[in-house]
Each structure stands twice: as C-alpha cells, then as structure tokens.
Design a protein around this nucleic acid. Structure first.
Length: 503
DNA sequence: GAAACGACTTAGTAGATGGTAG
DNA sequence: CTACCATCTACTAAGTCGTTTC
C-alpha cells in the first residue's frame, strides 16, 4: 500500500489522517499531529516480509493452506435455493481497510470500518437452518424476504450504501436473468428500425425535451453511451454518461479531418475511464447540438430538459422492458455477430479463427470503451515474444536446410534409412511452422489488445449463444473461447444453442 | 415530482494460480 | 526444479433503474 500511487494524493492523505485521528487515544492524538512526520516503514517491511514468506512456503504448506481454504468454501460457500444447492458469489464480508475510490474520488483514503454481526442482516427462509452469529454477538436482523435474491446485507460506512451477498453467476437464478436480458435485446433487434425512425423524426420536434431526448438516443444507439444518471456532487468522482453530459464535454467541428459535422467527445465515464471520440453525425443532430449549447457555459448540462427517468419512461413506452442499457447489449451482440460473419472463414486454421474471434470481440470492446491499464510489463513481454519469434524463424530456416540436405542424401544413397530421415525432417519443419504461426498470431493479438479489455464485454454484453453457435459452425472447441468459470456461467447457452442460432 | 433508497448489473485491478521454458 | 509470465479469480467500486418516501 505504501508504494501505491494513492499515498501521494493529497485528498487520500487528508482523509486517511482525519479518520485515523478519530481512532486514536488522547495521548496518541496529541502526539501524532502531522502525517508527513509519520514513518510507516516498519509495518510496511513486516507486510512485505509476510508476502515473501507466503511465496516461499513449502509445497506441503501451500497444499495445507489450499485445503483449509477449500474447507471454508465447502462450509460457507453454498446455499440451498428451491432445494438446489447453489454456489454463493461473495460469501465473505468485506474486511476493513482504506477506501480506494477510482479517479479523483473525494472520499479516497477514508477508513472503511470492520463489519460486526450487529451490522448484518440475514435473509433466509423461515424453515431454514439460520446461521448462528459468533459467540457473544447477534445479527442486526433475520428476515425472510423471498422477493429479493440476497442472502446477507449490511450498510457500508463510506457512502452509506448497501452491500450484498448474492449467488454465483453459474446459479440458475442468475442464468435465467442473463437469458432474459439477452431476450430483451433480441426483441429490440426486431423493433430497432421503427425506434430509429421515430427518434430521427423527433429531431425536428417543436418540443425541446423531445429533441434532446432524440439526440441523446442517437448517441446511446450509435455510440453505446451509458444512460448517465445524475450523481450527488462531492460524494463521488466527477464522471458522466449520456444524459449528464455537460457543455465542456463536447466540441463541435463544422469540418474536421475531411468530415463534416463532427462531434468531439472528451469526458470521464464509469470508473473514470476517459471517453475520447471524434464522430461525424448527421446534420440534424449537429444543428440541434448547436441549439442546445446556445447561451450555456461550461459546467451547464447539455441536455438540460432531460434525465434518465424521462428517457427510460419513453423507451419503455416504445417497447416493454426497453431501457437505455438495452441498446448497449443489443449493439454489442449484433456487432459481434456481424464481425464474426465478416472475419471468419471455416476453411482457415484454428489459430486464425481464434484471432478473428478476438478481433470481433475487440470491435465490441472498442465500441463499449472497455479499457484497461496497459500491463506494466507490456513492452518487456512484447520484446520477449519477438525474441521467441526470431529464434523460431532461425530454427525453421535450419530445419528447412536440414530437410534439403536429407532429401539430397536420400536421392544419392537411395536406401531406406535416409528416407525415414526425410520424413522426420519434414515433420520438424511442419512443427516449426505451426509454432511460428502460433507465436505470430499471439503477438498480433497482444499488440492489438494493449489497452483494451475483452473480459467485460464477453461476460456482460455478448449473447453467449452467438459464440456457442459460432464454435459449432467453425468446429472450434468451446474451451478455446470460454474458460472454466465462463463455461459455468454460460452453461445455459452451451446446453441449448444449435449451430443455426441467430441473435 | 424529486430526492432517497434498494437491488441488481457492470467494471477494472490486484493478487493467486498454474503452465512452461530454461 | 524454479523463475517467469500469462491467465484466472476474487474483490469491491461504480454504474443502472425501479420503488419508496417526503
């Protein structure tokens, strides 16, 4: 923690020190008045030593630890729901620590308190074996509410929001909800032409709200922006989505890079991830934006008549279950399907197919702006890979020469032994080529993926049935695109999907 | 009707895990 | 066998959106 960037931030330090002082005794409080004079070196060293010790544990010790952990999972990691044993997602209460918000969070560094049994609400059925609180403690409440899915909840002290213990993604309950989500998105597919026609008409409306709603929808649909709920100022980092965009977040260009009517977006979205994009838009949208910006200052809302409530009310009137985020799901999934169709060829090599799959996935991640910090060792690992490629190339060249040599010998000598040698050398060349291809594909994939995170879209936006059907059509084993956890989460799709599935 | 609340999904990251090259 | 590194998993913050409260 001490070597983390957080400790250099003023807000973090101030919040931490303020909360720390609250925990001090009188004497400590009078003694410790300046964080800059505090030396945490000793405790930091202790921590480091502990991690080091853990790393250096013997095989047996590691095994014992693993078994002990498994025992905890066996005992606390499952529940019974409608007579089915289900895995719980997060069954451990969050431990105390210093709050680490993302970006310039005003509460970073505050002390996140330890949760006591007295803070915890248990939710289970009346006839179940109610968990016993630790000795000398009692639960805040035991309730039996079957209209919600959580098993345990407590209130966290930083934002005052509720935290929950819920089921694992592979549970029947979560699986069914996931399926429903994609079914709503598929329904949007059948309605989207009408809805688009409608909002394009609305761009000309006499009502300001309607125009603003139409432009917002245009962005949400075309750019997969999030809805953008209002946030309480000073409670969280300053981030925005579509409806909460402010004047300073867009710049209009009549002309830019050879395009007309270009909108330049630059704002921080969820998790303080920057959204930067220059997008040519249709004239009507551009004119409306100019209108919305009239007589406004930076800091003013772009869509001053609009909020997510108004927008979603309208959307649900167009189609039951339709909200802003359905557009993200729909556009992500339809993009994957189109890209897969465009990029893959059933005749190509398995590795080439997988590269295409990743590229299709990548197109979606870019659309949804799913970014990651470039891995700290990126340059190094790229260089390592290149070195491997070079080595393999050399090896291949060598193998080829040896093959030629062997062929020559086989001709001149003509007995059976050299023939065998030729076959062996041929095989060596082939193996080399395979490995080289694999490395080269890996290098391309990794380079293109430097700042892009594929996981989020794979897990939350892409209808798994598209991928399952693709695997069947392309004769790609499902394990190549989904790891064990992902296969468990998408078991419903793997079970039910035929090769002819269309999103 | 707007602010607050509650429940749920979506998000990036840190650290654990485990496979592989040397 | 060990060190390295990519991948996986756990963690928890930060959104969305419907409901409740005032």
């Amino acid at each position: 923690m001490l070597d983390h960037e957080y400790t250099t931030k003023v807000v973090f330090r101030e919040n931490f020190f303020k909360d720390w002082r609250k925990e001090m005794t009188h004497e400590e409080r009078s003694l410790i008045q300046d964080l800059d004079k505090c030396d945490f070196g000793e405790i930091h060293a202790m921590h480091k030593a502990k991690t080091e010790a853990r790393k250096n544990m013997s095989k047996e010790e590691k095994q014992a630890l693993k078994e002990a952990n498994q025992k905890i999972v066996d005992e606390y990691g499952y529940c019974l729901l409608d007579h089915h044993k289900e895995r719980i997602g997060n069954f451990k209460i969050e431990p105390p620590g210093l709050f680490r918000g993302r970006g310039e969070h005003p509460k970073q560094g505050m002390l996140k308190k330890r949760i006591q049994p007295e803070d915890v609400i248990i939710n289970c059925s009346k006839d179940s074996r109610i968990p016993v609180p630790p000795a000398g403690h009692h639960w805040k409440e035991v309730r039996h509410d079957n209209s919600v899915t959580w098993l345990v909840s407590w209130t966290e002290n930083i934002q005052g929001s509720n935290k929950y213990i819920m089921l694992n993604a592979n549970s029947k309950l979560k699986g069914e909800k996931d399926w429903e989500k994609y079914e709503v998105a598929r329904k949007l597919k059948s309605r989207v032409d009408d809805i688009r026609y409608q909002y394009l008409q609305d761009l000309k409306s006499k009502q300001m709200v309607t125009r603003q709603r139409a432009v917002a929808l245009y962005f949400i649909d075309k750019l997969a922006l999030r809805a953008g709920n209002e946030k309480e100022e000073g409670e969280t980092a300053d981030t925005v989505g579509c409806c909460s965009l402010r004047v300073e977040h867009i710049t209009l260009h009549e002309q830019l890079d050879g395009n007309e009517c270009v909108v330049e977006f630059d704002f921080l979205g969820k998790d303080c991830i920057r959204y930067y994009n220059k997008v040519p838009v249709i004239k009507k949208v551009f004119k409306n934006l100019k209108l919305f910006l009239e007589n406004k200052q930076p800091g003013d809302e772009l869509f001053d008549r609009l909020n997510t409530n108004v927008l979603n009310k309208h959307l649900s009137s167009l189609m039951p279950g339709l909200t802003a985020k359905v557009f993200r799901t729909y556009n992500a999934s339809i993009t994957l399907q189109q890209q897969l169709k465009e990029l893959t060829n059933s005749q190509s090599h398995l590795l080439a197919k997988l590269l295409s799959y990743n590229r299709a996935n990548r197109a979606v991640a870019i659309l949804c702006n799913h970014q990651r910090a470039p891995p700290k060792t990126f340059e190094q690992s790229m260089a390592n890979l290149q070195a491997k490629i070079d080595a393999r190339k050399e090896q291949l060249a060598l193998a080829k020469t040896e093959l030629k040599q062997a062929k020559k010998e086989a001709k001149t000598k003509g007995n059976s032994d050299p023939k065998l040698l030729v076959e062996r050398k041929k095989a060596a060349v082939k193996r080399c080529e395979e490995q080289l291809l694999k490395l080269e594909v890996q290098a391309t994939d990794r380079e293109e993926n430097k700042q892009i995170a594929l996981g989020t879209s794979k897990l939350n936006y892409l209808d798994p049935r598209i991928s399952v059907a693709w695997c069947k059509n392309m004769e790609v084993p499902i394990e190549k695109i989904y790891n064990k956890t992902q296969r468990e989460k998408f078991a419903w799709a793997i079970d039910m999907t035929e090769a002819d599935f269309e999103f």
